[in-house]
């Protein structure tokens, strides 16, 4: 296997196109290098994306945020404006592995590894993140929702890579949160993950809601029927229980070494509800902070 560390997008796309299926792009490498070690993948060429300016850094503009696809979880956690705006996305990114893994693991890698249980993906879907893809055919923007097709399978074309993620500036009354269930407190793959974002009016009425679940289907899923349980009303416990029930109903998980189907189904609802509660609390806090400052 050969290693290449291109300095530009053109160079990277060129290398990936040339080598075709034998090439593999790498960001943090925290999944990929494990796959190399176990022999699960045996690429001829590894294209390291971390030296390409477009994939690095976080921009916080007036319109919103641009997060480079190869930016590490630790850098994301250190970006205070992003944490302020999208705490759910940041807490999900920070849950990817240990402190050591955080030093390397990226949103781009977490998404392209295409695990149904990836922590950052439900949070990104809930937040409405869009990613920029570049490949031999050019550039396109795709919602995170549409990237993962199944375990290990993405919508990316050959030699196409994710360059960055875009998140808007959150509107007033927005809140997001991510919750996951693991048997330990750290160092586990999610048995269930739930990302929720809401936007509420100052009155408390829910104006918008997105719910996404991880590890309960072949890919992370958006559950609009669960979100609809909150829409247009002040979310009380009854509405939240409805959201939980619909999230559980949408779950279609498998039995595996990490958890049973029955367990995942049940806990999907619990976590969706808890994430919604936290997102609503954050949304309420935003209104409170705004009325205090004015």
């Amino acid at each position: 296997m050969e290693y290449a560390s291109p300095r530009s997008l053109d160079e990277a796309i060129g290398l990936l196109s040339q080598a075709g299926v034998d090439a593999r792009p790498m960001a943090g490498g925290t999944d990929l290098l494990v796959q190399l070690r176990t022999g699960a993948r045996r690429p001829e060429l590894l294209v390291d994306l971390k030296q390409i300016p477009g994939l690095c850094g976080i921009d916080c503009g007036s319109q919103g945020f641009r997060i480079g696809a190869a930016v590490s979880g630790a850098e994301i956690g250190e970006c205070l404006p992003l944490r302020e705006a999208w705490p759910g996305v940041v807490e999900a990114a920070e849950l990817i592995g240990s402190t050591q893994i955080q030093g390397r693991a990226s949103l781009g890698g977490n998404l392209c590894n295409a695990s149904p249980a990836a922590d950052s993906v439900p949070a990104l879907i809930a937040a409405g993140a869009v990613c920029t893809l570049i490949g031999p055919a050019g550039r396109r923007e795709v919602p995170v929702d549409d990237i993962v097709r199944g375990p290990g399978e993405t919508a990316l074309g050959e030699a196409e890579i994710i360059v960055d993620f875009r998140l808007p500036r959150p509107q007033d009354g927005t809140g997001d949160a991510y919750q996951r269930m693991i048997p330990r407190t750290e160092m586990d793959i999610a048995i269930v993950g739930a990302g929720v974002s809401v936007r509420v009016a100052e009155s408390g009425e829910c104006l918008a809601c997105r719910v996404a679940l991880g590890a309960v289907a072949a890919r992370p899923i958006r559950v609009d029927e669960a979100a609809a349980a909150l829409m247009g009303r002040r979310p009380d416990s009854e509405a939240l229980e409805e959201l939980a029930a619909r999230a559980s109903a949408a779950a279609d998980p498998i039995d595996d070494k990490r958890g049973t189907r029955a367990y995942r189904t049940r806990v999907a609802g619990v976590l969706a509800r808890r994430a919604a509660e936290e997102a609503l609390r954050r949304a309420g806090d935003r209104w409170a902070a705004r009325s205090q400052s004015s």
Partner: peptide, 29 residues
């Protein structure tokens, strides 16, 4: 472990904590 799960191989890379088993030597350039 060689898979980033135990931390015994921890090193600092430009001051950032990483597992040296999850990093290619070539990346140390």
């Amino acid at each position: 472990c060689g898979t980033g799960d135990c931390g015994a191989c921890s090193v600092l890379l430009d001051g950032r904590l990483v597992c040296s088993c999850l990093m290619l030597a070539a990346e140390a350039e």
